[in-house]
Design a protein around this nucleic acid. Structure first.
Lengths: 219, 219
DNA sequence: ACGACGATGCTTACACCGTAAGCATGATCT
DNA sequence: AGATCATGCTTACGGTGTAAGCATCGTCGT
Protein backbone atom coordinates (compact mmCIF):
# COMPACT_ATOMS: atom_id res chain seq x y z
CA UNK A 1 0.00 0.00 0.00
CA UNK A 2 1.81 3.16 -1.18
CA UNK A 3 0.71 5.14 1.85
CA UNK A 4 -1.57 7.37 -0.09
CA UNK A 5 -2.94 10.14 2.03
CA UNK A 6 -6.65 9.92 2.69
CA UNK A 7 -8.54 11.97 0.18
CA UNK A 8 -5.94 11.49 -2.52
CA UNK A 9 -7.54 9.88 -5.53
CA UNK A 10 -6.52 6.53 -6.86
CA UNK A 11 -8.57 7.01 -9.99
CA UNK A 12 -10.96 4.26 -8.99
CA UNK A 13 -14.07 3.83 -11.07
CA UNK A 14 -16.74 1.23 -11.39
CA UNK A 15 -15.27 0.52 -14.81
CA UNK A 16 -11.76 0.10 -13.49
CA UNK A 17 -12.96 -2.04 -10.62
CA UNK A 18 -14.81 -4.35 -12.98
CA UNK A 19 -11.86 -4.52 -15.33
CA UNK A 20 -9.54 -5.45 -12.52
CA UNK A 21 -11.97 -8.01 -11.18
CA UNK A 22 -12.30 -9.64 -14.59
CA UNK A 23 -8.54 -9.74 -14.97
CA UNK A 24 -8.15 -11.20 -11.53
CA UNK A 25 -10.76 -13.90 -12.09
CA UNK A 26 -9.25 -14.80 -15.44
CA UNK A 27 -5.82 -15.06 -13.85
CA UNK A 28 -6.54 -16.71 -10.51
CA UNK A 29 -9.99 -18.21 -10.77
CA UNK A 30 -13.31 -17.20 -9.29
CA UNK A 31 -12.87 -18.70 -5.79
CA UNK A 32 -9.67 -16.68 -5.30
CA UNK A 33 -11.44 -13.38 -5.80
CA UNK A 34 -11.96 -11.46 -2.59
CA UNK A 35 -12.58 -7.80 -2.00
CA UNK A 36 -9.27 -7.45 -0.19
CA UNK A 37 -7.26 -9.09 -2.93
CA UNK A 38 -9.05 -7.07 -5.58
CA UNK A 39 -8.32 -3.95 -3.62
CA UNK A 40 -4.67 -4.91 -3.41
CA UNK A 41 -4.60 -5.42 -7.16
CA UNK A 42 -5.76 -1.82 -7.52
CA UNK A 43 -3.48 -0.43 -4.84
CA UNK A 44 -6.38 0.28 -2.57
CA UNK A 45 -8.00 -1.03 0.60
CA UNK A 46 -10.93 -3.39 0.27
CA UNK A 47 -13.48 -0.98 1.68
CA UNK A 48 -12.62 1.61 -0.92
CA UNK A 49 -14.20 -0.59 -3.54
CA UNK A 50 -17.56 -0.16 -1.88
CA UNK A 51 -17.67 3.41 -3.08
CA UNK A 52 -18.09 2.12 -6.60
CA UNK A 53 -19.89 -1.17 -6.11
CA UNK A 54 -22.66 -1.78 -3.59
CA UNK A 55 -21.47 -5.23 -2.61
CA UNK A 56 -19.65 -8.26 -3.90
CA UNK A 57 -22.73 -9.82 -5.43
CA UNK A 58 -23.33 -6.74 -7.52
CA UNK A 59 -19.72 -6.84 -8.60
CA UNK A 60 -20.17 -10.40 -9.81
CA UNK A 61 -23.31 -9.39 -11.67
CA UNK A 62 -21.27 -6.67 -13.26
CA UNK A 63 -18.74 -9.22 -14.43
CA UNK A 64 -21.44 -11.24 -16.13
CA UNK A 65 -22.81 -8.16 -17.83
CA UNK A 66 -19.34 -7.29 -19.00
CA UNK A 67 -18.76 -10.67 -20.61
CA UNK A 68 -22.19 -10.78 -22.19
CA UNK A 69 -21.58 -7.36 -23.60
CA UNK A 70 -18.36 -8.47 -25.29
CA UNK A 71 -20.22 -11.51 -26.58
CA UNK A 72 -22.90 -9.57 -28.39
CA UNK A 73 -21.43 -6.27 -29.45
CA UNK A 74 -20.66 -6.56 -33.10
CA UNK A 75 -23.34 -9.17 -33.48
CA UNK A 76 -26.10 -7.24 -35.13
CA UNK A 77 -29.71 -8.27 -35.34
CA UNK A 78 -30.99 -10.89 -37.73
CA UNK A 79 -32.11 -9.29 -40.95
CA UNK A 80 -34.53 -10.76 -43.44
CA UNK A 81 -34.52 -14.52 -43.76
CA UNK A 82 -31.00 -15.09 -42.55
CA UNK A 83 -32.07 -15.75 -38.99
CA UNK A 84 -30.64 -19.28 -39.07
CA UNK A 85 -27.21 -17.89 -39.85
CA UNK A 86 -27.67 -15.22 -37.23
CA UNK A 87 -28.61 -17.80 -34.60
CA UNK A 88 -25.51 -19.76 -35.45
CA UNK A 89 -23.36 -16.67 -35.01
CA UNK A 90 -25.20 -15.91 -31.78
CA UNK A 91 -24.40 -19.31 -30.30
CA UNK A 92 -20.81 -19.43 -31.45
CA UNK A 93 -20.16 -15.87 -30.35
CA UNK A 94 -21.57 -16.58 -26.92
CA UNK A 95 -19.44 -19.68 -26.61
CA UNK A 96 -16.30 -17.80 -27.57
CA UNK A 97 -16.94 -15.08 -25.04
CA UNK A 98 -17.60 -17.61 -22.28
CA UNK A 99 -14.50 -19.61 -23.07
CA UNK A 100 -12.46 -16.41 -23.06
CA UNK A 101 -13.49 -15.85 -19.44
CA UNK A 102 -13.96 -19.29 -17.94
CA UNK A 103 -13.89 -17.96 -14.41
CA UNK A 104 -17.05 -15.97 -15.06
CA UNK A 105 -18.85 -18.89 -16.62
CA UNK A 106 -20.33 -20.29 -13.39
CA UNK A 107 -21.65 -16.83 -12.68
CA UNK A 108 -23.13 -16.41 -16.13
CA UNK A 109 -24.81 -19.77 -15.71
CA UNK A 110 -26.32 -18.83 -12.39
CA UNK A 111 -27.32 -15.18 -12.59
CA UNK A 112 -30.01 -13.92 -14.91
CA UNK A 113 -28.88 -10.93 -16.92
CA UNK A 114 -31.40 -8.15 -16.77
CA UNK A 115 -29.25 -5.13 -17.41
CA UNK A 116 -30.94 -2.48 -19.53
CA UNK A 117 -28.46 -3.12 -22.32
CA UNK A 118 -29.26 -6.82 -22.33
CA UNK A 119 -32.97 -6.13 -22.46
CA UNK A 120 -32.46 -3.69 -25.28
CA UNK A 121 -30.56 -6.28 -27.30
CA UNK A 122 -33.17 -8.95 -26.69
CA UNK A 123 -35.85 -6.55 -27.79
CA UNK A 124 -33.97 -5.85 -30.99
CA UNK A 125 -33.49 -9.51 -31.77
CA UNK A 126 -37.11 -10.34 -31.16
CA UNK A 127 -38.27 -7.45 -33.27
CA UNK A 128 -36.05 -8.48 -36.16
CA UNK A 129 -37.11 -12.10 -36.05
CA UNK A 130 -40.75 -11.14 -36.03
CA UNK A 131 -40.38 -9.05 -39.13
CA UNK A 132 -38.81 -12.16 -40.68
CA UNK A 133 -42.14 -13.86 -40.09
CA UNK A 134 -41.42 -15.81 -36.94
CA UNK A 135 -43.98 -15.96 -34.14
CA UNK A 136 -42.85 -14.17 -31.01
CA UNK A 137 -42.91 -17.26 -28.83
CA UNK A 138 -40.89 -19.22 -31.34
CA UNK A 139 -38.25 -16.52 -31.60
CA UNK A 140 -37.89 -16.41 -27.84
CA UNK A 141 -37.72 -20.18 -27.68
CA UNK A 142 -34.91 -20.36 -30.18
CA UNK A 143 -32.81 -17.70 -28.53
CA UNK A 144 -33.32 -19.17 -25.09
CA UNK A 145 -32.69 -22.74 -26.13
CA UNK A 146 -29.50 -21.83 -27.93
CA UNK A 147 -28.30 -19.68 -25.07
CA UNK A 148 -28.98 -22.28 -22.41
CA UNK A 149 -27.48 -25.06 -24.46
CA UNK A 150 -24.39 -22.98 -25.12
CA UNK A 151 -23.98 -22.25 -21.44
CA UNK A 152 -24.50 -25.85 -20.44
CA UNK A 153 -22.17 -27.19 -23.07
CA UNK A 154 -19.47 -24.66 -22.31
CA UNK A 155 -19.73 -25.41 -18.61
CA UNK A 156 -18.96 -29.03 -19.35
CA UNK A 157 -16.22 -28.04 -21.73
CA UNK A 158 -14.44 -25.75 -19.33
CA UNK A 159 -15.36 -28.18 -16.61
CA UNK A 160 -13.02 -28.91 -13.77
CA UNK A 161 -13.44 -27.19 -10.48
CA UNK A 162 -13.59 -23.47 -11.17
CA UNK A 163 -10.21 -22.19 -10.13
CA UNK A 164 -8.28 -25.25 -11.15
CA UNK A 165 -6.10 -25.81 -14.17
CA UNK A 166 -6.67 -29.42 -15.15
CA UNK A 167 -6.24 -29.27 -18.92
CA UNK A 168 -7.24 -32.91 -19.36
CA UNK A 169 -10.96 -33.35 -20.14
CA UNK A 170 -11.54 -34.93 -16.77
CA UNK A 171 -11.84 -38.42 -18.09
CA UNK A 172 -8.25 -39.11 -18.96
CA UNK A 173 -7.23 -38.77 -15.36
CA UNK A 174 -9.25 -41.81 -14.46
CA UNK A 175 -8.14 -43.83 -17.44
CA UNK A 176 -5.44 -45.69 -15.55
CA UNK A 177 -7.79 -46.92 -12.84
CA UNK A 178 -10.38 -48.28 -15.24
CA UNK A 179 -10.75 -52.03 -15.46
CA UNK A 180 -10.51 -52.85 -19.18
CA UNK A 181 -12.97 -55.69 -18.78
CA UNK A 182 -15.60 -53.54 -17.12
CA UNK A 183 -15.19 -50.32 -19.11
CA UNK A 184 -14.31 -51.27 -22.69
CA UNK A 185 -16.33 -48.48 -24.25
CA UNK A 186 -15.10 -45.69 -22.02
CA UNK A 187 -11.54 -46.83 -22.63
CA UNK A 188 -12.14 -46.85 -26.35
CA UNK A 189 -13.47 -43.31 -26.08
CA UNK A 190 -10.29 -42.26 -24.34
CA UNK A 191 -8.11 -44.07 -26.83
CA UNK A 192 -9.83 -42.91 -30.00
CA UNK A 193 -11.03 -39.52 -28.70
CA UNK A 194 -14.35 -40.35 -30.37
CA UNK A 195 -16.95 -37.93 -29.09
CA UNK A 196 -14.44 -35.79 -27.23
CA UNK A 197 -14.19 -32.99 -29.76
CA UNK A 198 -16.15 -30.22 -28.09
CA UNK A 199 -15.85 -27.90 -31.03
CA UNK A 200 -17.48 -30.10 -33.62
CA UNK A 201 -19.97 -31.52 -31.16
CA UNK A 202 -21.14 -28.04 -30.34
CA UNK A 203 -21.32 -27.01 -33.96
CA UNK A 204 -23.30 -30.09 -34.88
CA UNK A 205 -25.79 -29.72 -32.04
CA UNK A 206 -26.34 -26.05 -32.81
CA UNK A 207 -26.98 -26.86 -36.45
CA UNK A 208 -29.40 -29.61 -35.52
CA UNK A 209 -31.34 -27.25 -33.29
CA UNK A 210 -31.54 -24.48 -35.84
CA UNK A 211 -32.51 -26.83 -38.62
CA UNK A 212 -35.10 -28.41 -36.39
CA UNK A 213 -36.69 -25.08 -35.57
CA UNK A 214 -36.53 -24.03 -39.21
CA UNK A 215 -38.42 -27.16 -40.20
CA UNK A 216 -41.22 -26.50 -37.74
CA UNK A 217 -44.53 -25.37 -39.24
CA UNK A 218 -45.34 -21.71 -38.62
CA UNK A 219 -48.58 -21.53 -36.73
CA UNK B 1 -25.91 -28.67 21.71
CA UNK B 2 -27.28 -31.37 24.05
CA UNK B 3 -24.04 -31.63 26.03
CA UNK B 4 -23.17 -35.05 24.79
CA UNK B 5 -20.09 -36.41 26.49
CA UNK B 6 -17.10 -36.82 24.24
CA UNK B 7 -16.96 -40.30 22.83
CA UNK B 8 -20.70 -40.73 22.95
CA UNK B 9 -21.96 -41.46 19.47
CA UNK B 10 -24.36 -39.27 17.62
CA UNK B 11 -24.88 -41.87 14.95
CA UNK B 12 -23.16 -39.75 12.36
CA UNK B 13 -22.44 -41.31 9.00
CA UNK B 14 -21.35 -40.08 5.64
CA UNK B 15 -24.83 -41.01 4.48
CA UNK B 16 -26.55 -39.07 7.23
CA UNK B 17 -24.27 -36.10 6.72
CA UNK B 18 -25.05 -36.01 3.01
CA UNK B 19 -28.76 -36.41 3.66
CA UNK B 20 -28.75 -33.55 6.11
CA UNK B 21 -26.72 -31.37 3.77
CA UNK B 22 -29.14 -32.03 0.93
CA UNK B 23 -32.08 -31.20 3.15
CA UNK B 24 -30.39 -28.05 4.34
CA UNK B 25 -29.56 -26.88 0.85
CA UNK B 26 -33.07 -27.59 -0.35
CA UNK B 27 -34.49 -25.67 2.56
CA UNK B 28 -32.14 -22.70 2.88
CA UNK B 29 -30.22 -22.52 -0.37
CA UNK B 30 -26.66 -23.32 -1.21
CA UNK B 31 -25.00 -20.11 0.01
CA UNK B 32 -26.46 -20.64 3.48
CA UNK B 33 -24.78 -24.01 3.89
CA UNK B 34 -21.83 -23.92 6.25
CA UNK B 35 -20.14 -26.68 8.16
CA UNK B 36 -21.20 -25.15 11.45
CA UNK B 37 -24.83 -24.86 10.50
CA UNK B 38 -24.85 -28.34 9.06
CA UNK B 39 -23.34 -29.60 12.30
CA UNK B 40 -26.01 -27.81 14.29
CA UNK B 41 -28.67 -29.41 12.13
CA UNK B 42 -27.26 -32.78 13.16
CA UNK B 43 -26.77 -31.84 16.81
CA UNK B 44 -23.04 -31.90 16.44
CA UNK B 45 -20.07 -29.55 16.25
CA UNK B 46 -18.76 -28.57 12.83
CA UNK B 47 -15.45 -30.38 13.23
CA UNK B 48 -17.19 -33.65 13.91
CA UNK B 49 -18.33 -33.71 10.31
CA UNK B 50 -14.75 -34.00 9.19
CA UNK B 51 -14.65 -37.54 10.49
CA UNK B 52 -16.99 -38.52 7.69
CA UNK B 53 -16.16 -36.08 4.92
CA UNK B 54 -12.65 -34.90 4.06
CA UNK B 55 -13.65 -31.31 3.44
CA UNK B 56 -16.50 -29.14 2.28
CA UNK B 57 -15.68 -29.52 -1.38
CA UNK B 58 -15.93 -33.28 -1.13
CA UNK B 59 -19.24 -32.86 0.64
CA UNK B 60 -20.55 -30.80 -2.25
CA UNK B 61 -19.31 -33.39 -4.71
CA UNK B 62 -21.21 -35.95 -2.67
CA UNK B 63 -24.37 -33.89 -3.01
CA UNK B 64 -24.05 -33.87 -6.77
CA UNK B 65 -23.50 -37.61 -6.86
CA UNK B 66 -26.54 -38.06 -4.68
CA UNK B 67 -28.80 -36.10 -6.99
CA UNK B 68 -27.45 -37.73 -10.12
CA UNK B 69 -28.02 -41.09 -8.55
CA UNK B 70 -31.67 -40.32 -7.91
CA UNK B 71 -31.92 -39.05 -11.47
CA UNK B 72 -30.75 -42.24 -13.11
CA UNK B 73 -31.72 -45.13 -10.88
CA UNK B 74 -34.78 -46.66 -12.39
CA UNK B 75 -33.73 -45.46 -15.80
CA UNK B 76 -32.41 -48.57 -17.42
CA UNK B 77 -30.24 -48.74 -20.49
CA UNK B 78 -31.55 -48.24 -24.00
CA UNK B 79 -32.49 -51.57 -25.52
CA UNK B 80 -32.82 -52.32 -29.21
CA UNK B 81 -33.94 -49.47 -31.38
CA UNK B 82 -35.75 -47.49 -28.73
CA UNK B 83 -32.79 -45.29 -27.99
CA UNK B 84 -34.69 -42.17 -29.01
CA UNK B 85 -37.31 -42.87 -26.39
CA UNK B 86 -34.60 -43.69 -23.89
CA UNK B 87 -32.80 -40.42 -24.59
CA UNK B 88 -36.03 -38.56 -24.02
CA UNK B 89 -36.51 -40.30 -20.69
CA UNK B 90 -32.88 -39.57 -19.83
CA UNK B 91 -33.27 -35.86 -20.41
CA UNK B 92 -36.61 -35.51 -18.67
CA UNK B 93 -35.48 -37.61 -15.74
CA UNK B 94 -32.39 -35.50 -15.31
CA UNK B 95 -34.43 -32.34 -15.44
CA UNK B 96 -36.85 -33.60 -12.82
CA UNK B 97 -34.06 -34.55 -10.46
CA UNK B 98 -32.36 -31.19 -10.87
CA UNK B 99 -35.57 -29.27 -10.33
CA UNK B 100 -36.24 -31.30 -7.21
CA UNK B 101 -32.98 -30.02 -5.72
CA UNK B 102 -32.46 -26.58 -7.18
CA UNK B 103 -29.83 -25.69 -4.61
CA UNK B 104 -27.57 -28.42 -5.92
CA UNK B 105 -28.02 -27.37 -9.52
CA UNK B 106 -25.15 -24.86 -9.62
CA UNK B 107 -22.92 -27.56 -8.23
CA UNK B 108 -24.08 -30.13 -10.73
CA UNK B 109 -23.42 -27.64 -13.49
CA UNK B 110 -19.91 -26.93 -12.28
CA UNK B 111 -18.46 -30.21 -11.07
CA UNK B 112 -17.80 -33.13 -13.35
CA UNK B 113 -19.23 -36.34 -11.97
CA UNK B 114 -16.69 -39.11 -12.04
CA UNK B 115 -17.93 -41.36 -9.29
CA UNK B 116 -17.50 -45.06 -10.04
CA UNK B 117 -21.26 -45.46 -10.19
CA UNK B 118 -21.56 -42.71 -12.74
CA UNK B 119 -18.86 -44.21 -14.90
CA UNK B 120 -20.52 -47.59 -14.67
CA UNK B 121 -23.81 -46.15 -15.85
CA UNK B 122 -22.19 -44.30 -18.73
CA UNK B 123 -20.45 -47.46 -19.78
CA UNK B 124 -23.74 -49.33 -19.78
CA UNK B 125 -25.47 -46.68 -21.86
CA UNK B 126 -22.71 -46.55 -24.41
CA UNK B 127 -22.61 -50.32 -24.69
CA UNK B 128 -26.34 -50.54 -25.23
CA UNK B 129 -26.39 -47.82 -27.86
CA UNK B 130 -23.56 -49.45 -29.75
CA UNK B 131 -25.38 -52.73 -29.96
CA UNK B 132 -28.25 -50.70 -31.38
CA UNK B 133 -25.93 -49.82 -34.23
CA UNK B 134 -24.81 -46.35 -33.20
CA UNK B 135 -21.19 -45.33 -33.55
CA UNK B 136 -19.47 -44.78 -30.22
CA UNK B 137 -18.73 -41.14 -30.83
CA UNK B 138 -22.30 -40.46 -31.87
CA UNK B 139 -23.68 -42.11 -28.77
CA UNK B 140 -21.40 -40.07 -26.54
CA UNK B 141 -22.33 -36.90 -28.41
CA UNK B 142 -26.01 -37.46 -27.91
CA UNK B 143 -25.77 -38.19 -24.21
CA UNK B 144 -23.47 -35.26 -23.59
CA UNK B 145 -25.46 -32.81 -25.66
CA UNK B 146 -28.69 -33.75 -23.96
CA UNK B 147 -27.12 -33.63 -20.54
CA UNK B 148 -25.50 -30.25 -21.05
CA UNK B 149 -28.59 -28.79 -22.62
CA UNK B 150 -30.72 -30.07 -19.78
CA UNK B 151 -28.40 -28.54 -17.22
CA UNK B 152 -28.22 -25.23 -19.03
CA UNK B 153 -31.95 -25.03 -19.56
CA UNK B 154 -32.74 -26.00 -15.99
CA UNK B 155 -30.29 -23.43 -14.69
CA UNK B 156 -32.19 -20.76 -16.54
CA UNK B 157 -35.48 -22.20 -15.37
CA UNK B 158 -34.58 -22.29 -11.73
CA UNK B 159 -32.69 -19.07 -12.28
CA UNK B 160 -32.66 -16.34 -9.72
CA UNK B 161 -29.76 -15.97 -7.36
CA UNK B 162 -29.16 -19.36 -5.80
CA UNK B 163 -30.57 -19.07 -2.31
CA UNK B 164 -33.36 -16.76 -3.20
CA UNK B 165 -37.06 -17.43 -3.59
CA UNK B 166 -38.23 -15.18 -6.37
CA UNK B 167 -41.02 -17.22 -7.95
CA UNK B 168 -41.43 -14.81 -10.83
CA UNK B 169 -39.41 -15.78 -13.91
CA UNK B 170 -37.16 -12.79 -13.46
CA UNK B 171 -38.67 -10.82 -16.26
CA UNK B 172 -41.96 -9.89 -14.69
CA UNK B 173 -40.23 -7.94 -11.99
CA UNK B 174 -38.93 -5.50 -14.54
CA UNK B 175 -42.16 -5.25 -16.44
CA UNK B 176 -43.29 -2.09 -14.70
CA UNK B 177 -40.13 -0.17 -15.54
CA UNK B 178 -40.20 -1.02 -19.23
CA UNK B 179 -40.97 1.77 -21.62
CA UNK B 180 -43.82 0.45 -23.80
CA UNK B 181 -42.49 2.37 -26.79
CA UNK B 182 -39.00 0.92 -26.50
CA UNK B 183 -39.83 -2.64 -25.49
CA UNK B 184 -43.06 -3.62 -27.26
CA UNK B 185 -42.00 -7.21 -27.88
CA UNK B 186 -40.71 -7.93 -24.39
CA UNK B 187 -43.91 -6.50 -22.97
CA UNK B 188 -45.96 -8.65 -25.28
CA UNK B 189 -43.98 -11.65 -24.09
CA UNK B 190 -44.83 -10.79 -20.52
CA UNK B 191 -48.45 -10.17 -21.31
CA UNK B 192 -49.07 -13.25 -23.44
CA UNK B 193 -46.55 -15.56 -21.75
CA UNK B 194 -45.52 -16.59 -25.27
CA UNK B 195 -42.25 -18.46 -25.01
CA UNK B 196 -42.27 -18.56 -21.24
CA UNK B 197 -43.45 -22.13 -20.82
CA UNK B 198 -40.26 -23.90 -19.77
CA UNK B 199 -41.88 -27.30 -19.80
CA UNK B 200 -42.98 -27.35 -23.40
CA UNK B 201 -39.94 -25.45 -24.59
CA UNK B 202 -37.70 -28.07 -23.05
CA UNK B 203 -39.73 -30.94 -24.45
CA UNK B 204 -39.68 -29.43 -27.91
CA UNK B 205 -35.96 -28.78 -27.93
CA UNK B 206 -35.18 -32.27 -26.68
CA UNK B 207 -37.36 -33.76 -29.39
CA UNK B 208 -35.67 -31.64 -32.04
CA UNK B 209 -32.25 -32.76 -30.89
CA UNK B 210 -33.15 -36.43 -30.81
CA UNK B 211 -34.89 -36.31 -34.17
CA UNK B 212 -31.93 -34.44 -35.60
CA UNK B 213 -29.47 -37.05 -34.43
CA UNK B 214 -31.74 -39.85 -35.60
CA UNK B 215 -31.82 -38.31 -39.08
CA UNK B 216 -28.05 -38.17 -39.32
CA UNK B 217 -26.42 -40.69 -41.64
CA UNK B 218 -24.57 -43.50 -39.89
CA UNK B 219 -20.96 -43.36 -40.94
C1' DA C 1 -10.22 34.63 -1.19
C1' DC C 2 -12.48 31.73 1.64
C1' DG C 3 -15.43 28.69 3.75
C1' DA C 4 -18.68 24.87 3.20
C1' DC C 5 -19.35 20.58 1.08
C1' DG C 6 -19.42 16.30 -1.27
C1' DA C 7 -16.51 12.61 -2.94
C1' DT C 8 -12.93 9.52 -2.03
C1' DG C 9 -10.16 6.37 0.37
C1' DC C 10 -8.54 4.57 4.98
C1' DT C 11 -9.14 2.57 9.66
C1' DT C 12 -11.29 -0.15 12.83
C1' DA C 13 -14.40 -3.63 14.10
C1' DC C 14 -17.62 -7.57 13.98
C1' DA C 15 -19.55 -11.87 12.88
C1' DC C 16 -18.81 -15.65 10.24
C1' DC C 17 -16.25 -19.01 7.49
C1' DG C 18 -13.19 -23.55 6.59
C1' DT C 19 -10.23 -26.35 8.91
C1' DA C 20 -5.58 -27.86 11.45
C1' DA C 21 -4.23 -29.89 15.98
C1' DG C 22 -4.98 -32.15 19.96
C1' DC C 23 -7.97 -34.12 23.74
C1' DA C 24 -11.61 -36.97 26.22
C1' DT C 25 -14.48 -40.54 26.09
C1' DG C 26 -16.89 -44.59 24.96
C1' DA C 27 -17.03 -49.03 22.21
C1' DT C 28 -14.54 -52.97 20.67
C1' DC C 29 -11.09 -56.53 20.56
C1' DT C 30 -7.43 -59.56 22.53
C1' DA D 1 -8.55 -56.38 32.27
C1' DG D 2 -5.96 -53.81 29.28
C1' DA D 3 -4.92 -51.87 24.84
C1' DT D 4 -6.62 -49.87 20.78
C1' DC D 5 -9.57 -47.33 17.99
C1' DA D 6 -13.35 -44.45 16.37
C1' DT D 7 -15.95 -40.60 17.55
C1' DG D 8 -17.03 -36.12 18.82
C1' DC D 9 -15.43 -31.81 21.24
C1' DT D 10 -12.35 -27.82 22.16
C1' DT D 11 -9.43 -24.41 20.85
C1' DA D 12 -7.21 -21.65 17.55
C1' DC D 13 -5.77 -19.36 13.15
C1' DG D 14 -6.11 -16.92 9.07
C1' DG D 15 -9.41 -15.55 5.90
C1' DT D 16 -14.01 -13.48 4.41
C1' DG D 17 -17.85 -9.63 3.50
C1' DT D 18 -19.14 -5.39 5.12
C1' DA D 19 -21.06 -1.70 8.68
C1' DA D 20 -19.50 2.73 10.80
C1' DG D 21 -16.87 6.55 11.17
C1' DC D 22 -12.82 9.50 10.03
C1' DA D 23 -9.33 12.29 7.34
C1' DT D 24 -8.36 14.51 3.46
C1' DC D 25 -8.89 16.18 -1.06
C1' DG D 26 -11.04 18.98 -5.19
C1' DT D 27 -14.84 21.96 -6.25
C1' DC D 28 -17.93 25.63 -5.97
C1' DG D 29 -20.88 29.57 -4.23
C1' DT D 30 -20.24 33.58 -2.20
Amino acid sequence: MPDRRAGAKAGLTRERVLDAALDYVDAHGLPALSMRKLGAQLGVEAMSLYRHVPNKDALLDGLVDRVMETAFTGLGAPSGDDWPAWLRAFAHGLRSALIAHPGVLPLAATRPVNSPDALRMSEGWLAAMRTAGLPLGRALDMVNVLATFTIGHTLAEVGQTPGHEGSEPDLDQHAAELDPAEFPNLLEVIATRAGLDFDSRFTQAVDILIAGYAALPRP
